[in-house]
């Protein structure tokens, strides 16, 4: 969990250090009228990397967090490649090495799906496996020293870098909304109009209270992807901030430095529990939500 000292890298103060570590590498369209970091006002809208947090904010929705996207895709590919390599040479005989490892995960996911999901849908288990492995890998990035990769990339001229995709609410909510889209798809596919009926007639099964039921159920429905995405984001973001705060101590002399090192280790050890737990929760909730979408009441 080593962290390079912050002072010598040109941070004016702790606040700037934290700010820097919480800013994504954003590529987007800077609109007319926005103020750039060096104080100018943009006269012509143009695309480019945001030079500071304010610019990234001014870009609004017309921007993409390149670092989040890149790490997200990269980790997804790591997962797919590892599993695909095993899937290519998989044998029904005695499994060895990587196949053992992959099969353990596959079996774990499959057992969870079997426990919760009682329908017949060959897509649920692969969805759960992808969710679990991808979230797990994203969360694992949090264990890397907070300064290591950003500092290395800064040497190469990349100004901002957040290496944990799951600390980006865009990513976690995107994943959660993907699950939500699947929920809606399967709800309509399995229940058709019955899905609307289910929303309208619970908890009070009478047409006179549809005006009460429907908003209540809709809020409950919308809350699912939000809670799913924000839970993961909140846990990982909080952990990341604590890592950054502890890393700040390395700038405070040898005593704080040693203390900081111990705290980094302790927090990392604790965080190792949080990482798979959050991945597991995300996966189980995905299965539960999709299972609810399949259940006809």
């Amino acid at each position: 969990m080593a962290s390079s000292g912050n002072e010598e890298h040109g941070y004016a103060n702790a606040s700037e250090y934290i700010q820097h570590h919480l800013t994504n590498l954003t590529y987007g369209k800077l609109p007319v009228g926005a103020e750039t970091c060096d104080g100018h006002t943009v006269t012509e809208a143009h695309w480019g990397f945001a030079q500071c947090g304010a610019e990234a904010k001014a870009m609004g929705f017309n921007a993409i967090n390149v670092d989040s996207m890149a790490w997200s895709i990269g980790l997804g590919l790591v997962f797919l490649l590892v599993f695909w390599r095993v899937a290519k040479s998989v044998t029904a005989g005695v499994p060895t090495g990587m196949q053992n490892f992959v099969e353990t995960i596959v079996e774990f996911v499959d057992n969870n799906v079997r426990d919760v999901f009682h329908g017949r849908n060959p897509w649920i288990a692969p969805i759960a496996l992808t969710v679990f492995c991808w979230v797990l890998l994203s969360n694992l990035m949090d264990i890397l020293p907070v300064d290591l990769v950003p500092w290395l990339l800064e040497q190469a001229g990349v100004k901002f870098q957040k290496i944990v995709p799951s600390t980006d609410p865009n990513v976690t909510l995107g994943t959660a909304v993907f699950v939500f889209i699947l929920m809606l798809y399967y709800s309509f596919k399995v229940k058709g109009f019955g899905f609307i009926k289910e929303l309208s007639f619970t908890p009070f099964n009478t047409p006179w209270l549809i005006w009460f039921n429907l908003p209540l159920e809709l809020v409950g429905l919308i809350a699912k992807p939000f809670s799913l995405g924000l839970r993961l984001f909140g846990n990982l973001y909080a952990a990341e901030i604590i890592f950054i705060l502890i890393a700040l101590m390395f700038g405070g002399g040898i005593i704080f430095g040693v203390l900081g090192g111990v705290m980094q280790l302790a927090w990392a050890a604790f965080h190792i529990l949080v990482i798979p737990l959050q991945a597991f929760i995300f996966m189980v909730l995905t299965i539960v939500y999709l299972s609810q979408a399949h259940e006809d009441h």
């Binding site: 921007a63 993409i64 967090n65 909304v177």
Partner: peptide, 8 residues
């Protein structure tokens, strides 16, 4: 921002 859509 659009990262949201990208992730989906």
């Amino acid at each position: 921002n659009a990262t949201f859509i990208g992730q989906i």
